[in-house]
Design a protein around this nucleic acid. Structure first.
Length: 446
RNA sequence: GCCCAGGUAGUGUAGUGGCCUAUCAUGAUUGCCUGUCACGCAAUCGACUCGGAUUCGAAUUCCGACCUGGGCGCCA
């Protein structure tokens, strides 16, 4: 982030000569700031107002004997979380937060806030997540919430830079689709004129089709929709997926891209978001080191069998308890590789020498799965066979299968959950903390 | 979908049959206060999710509804 976060805003969008609160230093002579009234402390002859914008907080100090009538009237009338414009002289003073305070010549209320507030922005009294999400606009005024979303923004910037730097083509694919083609997850049906339609669960089939188009390296960051009725701290019904597909690459190649991306993103956040990390008290923030370990599925199962009581067999999905046990053993980021073909989607490429396992992988964080990917089946007949094996009907996949008959290159790819990336990066306890307006089983508003 | 735990001032909580005219904190209003930084002090305001049942008496027990949190299942 630039030192002055508002520096790229054209002059005519600014309100007069206001400057970001963060950039008011003891050396600043006079300053005009705009922001929200964070706290009011009236001591009688002396009153302190904390004014907050997205960059920080400054103390405005009013000595009642010396202040003019307009300032006094506004200061008396203003409520917490009202929007104000304050201009005056900056005094260097050790007793004030940031070592400086603003002594106002003007104190203007741009818009009064109602009271009481739906939640406490100052965090004297905690609010439950549900209350916070109902008033997300207010919740997001809290500096630590602002910090999460500034970091999420930095993550997205890093991801985009990473792919553009490496010659990827950015694509967008439809979110309204005709049929449930992948099997597995439940889809949301929607009304689409006189046709049956669904919200897409993944850009998978479309990004593969762009391999047939010869785009070679594509990425997409977009919403995915899952109609699963789960109720956990790591599932959303609308999530953001970071997806790539690469031609002439195998699963090892795209695993390297994925771990490089994770490292790049963490490094970008570490250097560009120091204030935000400090705000979140994220003291243990460390850039992970690549390469991440590659743990074969069979070994992962062996660890889980040793560590937990549940009956676990080779060929099972990895349960949350098993996931935690393996995560505790491995620590940090790691891949689980060489999965049984049976429990992966039909488009995962089986190994030639042992078709019971496939060239699929999951990227794990100690706490949960972050991404999953594979080298794909690129031969038409093999793909049809695998679709049949999963009990699906190839005829309903014709739009997808067609490109495989006209020169589909070998390719591989993955999808990475953006919210889970942010959640694990910042050690958030609930994935909803990483989305402004989460969609879950119970929440459709706001 | 299954299981568990919940629903008390704006917010977060205490209260498991009568001591509840409901605790505490925060907040709001008013007054006092010149260096606060969770300012302090005083006064005031503000709540038992809804419906039914049991009981002399229900925030508290029971039934139903609605809402919420979490776990599991399921989940490219």
């Amino acid at each position: 982030m630039p030192k002055n976060p508002l520096s790229r805003v054209p002059q005519h969008y600014r309100i007069l000569m206001r400057i970001p609160i963060q950039s008011v230093t003891p050396a600043t002579g006079t300053a005009e700031v705009v922001g929200w009234v964070h706290e009011i402390r009236d001591l009688g002859g002396l009153a302190f107002f904390l004014i907050r914008d997205r960059t920080g907080i400054i103390q405005v100090t009013i000595v009642k004997k010396k202040a003019n009538d307009a300032v006094l009237a506004a200061a008396k009338a203003v409520s917490r979380e009202s929007v104000v414009r304050v201009a005056g002289t900056v005094r260097a003073i050790d007793k004030a937060p940031g070592g400086r305070e603003l002594v106002p010549e003007t104190f203007e209320i741009l818009n009064m806030s109602e009271s009481p507030l739906p939640l406490d922005v100052v965090e004297k009294v905690p609010a439950e997540l549900d209350t916070r999400l109902d008033a997300r606009f207010l919740d997001a005024r809290r500096p630590r919430v602002t910090a999460v979303f500034q970091i999420r923004s930095a993550v997205m910037q890093a991801v985009n830079e990473f792919f553009f730097d490496r010659g990827f083509i950015h694509i967008t694919t439809p979110k309204i689709v005709a049929a449930a083609t992948e099997g597995g997850t439940e889809l949301f049906p929607i009304a689409y004129f006189d046709k049956e339609a669904f919200l897409n669960q993944s850009p998978q089939l479309y990004k593969q089709m762009m391999m047939a188009a010869g785009f070679e390296k594509v990425f997409e960051i977009g919403p995915i929709f899952r109609a699963e009725e789960h109720n956990t701290t790591k599932h959303l019904n609308e999530a953001t997926s970071i997806d790539i597909e690469v031609s002439f690459a195998d699963h090892y190649d795209v695993m390297r891209i994925l771990e490089d991306l994770i490292v790049y993103t963490y490094a970008h956040v570490k250097t560009s978001c120091t204030d935000q990390l400090a705000n979140l008290e994220c003291t243990g923030f460390e850039v992970p080191a690549a390469p991440f370990s590659r743990l074969p599925y069979a070994e992962a199962i062996a660890i889980a069998q040793k560590m937990i009581d549940e009956p676990i067999r080779y060929g099972d999905d990895i349960s949350p308890a098993a996931e935690r046990a393996i995560g505790a053993e491995m620590g940090g980021h790691y891949f689980i590789v060489d999965w049984p073909t049976e429990i992966r989607p039909y488009y995962a490429m089986p190994y030639e020498d042992d078709p019971s396992t496939c060239r699929a992988f999951d990227l794990m964080h100690q706490r949960m799965e972050l991404a999953s990917g594979a080298e794909r089946v690129h031969r038409h007949d093999q793909l049809v066979q695998q679709i049949r094996k999963k009990g699906l009907n190839p005829e309903s996949f014709e739009f997808y299968l067609r490109p495989f008959r006209y020169g589909m290159p070998p390719h591989a790819g993955w999808g990475l959950g953006a919210e889970r990336l942010v959640m694990t990066m910042l050690d958030l306890s609930n994935v909803r903390e990483a989305v402004l307006f989460p969609r879950d089983m119970h929440r459709l508003v706001p």
